[in-house]
Design a protein around this nucleic acid. Structure first.
Lengths: 142, 142
DNA sequence: CGGCATCCGAGTAGATACTG
DNA sequence: CAGTATCTACTCGGATGCCG
């Protein structure tokens, strides 16, 4: 898999985007208070990524369906993640007071909007995952 | 900040992309072995994001320069992250055997390629960070 | 200067049991 | 069914000291 070189022009464009976002990039106090990093860390941790992907694939899922699909996740962590994603507006939680109780989760429009971007990053990683494996082997050998 | 609704057509497109990436999405054993999630978790954790952004903004940085900029990071963690990013091919590490020693880090073309995608996600978050704050307030109130 | 080794504390994850 | 409660285990981060 060949990586095209990034031109200086493109690098300047990237730098400008960063500058625009973090205009206050120099004063050290501002950057740490900036919420972007923490928001991203919450919505792109290893479990949340899977939750987003599954809800992007299956429009509606119940708690135990998610638990089965997001293999390896515990009740506790799934519950926490869903609560966080609900709180931040990425997913909606609908409870039906039947017996037994039924709760359905799905992406909101906001969540879909985020997933689109997350998916692009995921696709990049998918495209280059072998490259990364090779890089690791090379590194190990050196 | 208004979120445009995602059309059903777009949702199908997203689902297809996911299916293409995780064609083996059903057998529960495959998904967990899939390295994509772990690669993403490594390169989009809260510290790595800042390292990428700073190296995208300042083309070349030394260890202690990064440490000052990535405010709050410890020697140990910075060292670990840089090693991982170097191993995976995102950054290059050049050592000059002067006294005192000088080590320079910069993004590789591979790293620049990744940063471009990461930046798009970051921009999305930057655009909607107020929305997320509002969502949290609404959630708290409910 | 650029780390690595070591130790320690906090937080987080996981397993299990239990409940409305 | 959809969680919560509890406990344990463990990873991870932070601080410090040292060395080439």
């Amino acid at each position: 898999m060949e990586i095209e070189t990034t031109t200086d022009y493109q690098k300047v464009k990237v730098a400008n985007k960063i500058k625009k976002m973090f205009g206050h990039i120099n004063p050290r106090t501002s950057m740490e208070l900036c919420p972007i990093r923490d928001i991203m860390a919450l919505s792109s941790d290893k479990w949340s990524i899977l939750i987003f992907l599954y809800l992007g694939f299956f429009p509606v899922l119940r708690f135990n369906e998610l638990k089965k699909k997001v293999y390896g996740i515990s009740n506790k962590v799934l519950s926490e993640r869903l609560k966080t994603l609900d709180r931040d507006g990425y997913i909606s939680r609908k409870m039906y007071s039947e017996v037994p109780i039924r709760v359905e989760y799905q992406l909101t429009d906001f969540g879909h909007s985020y997933l689109k971007k997350l998916l692009e990053l995921t696709e990049w990683v998918d495209t280059y995952k072998e490259t990364i494996q090779e890089n690791r082997l090379k590194y190990k050998a050196s």
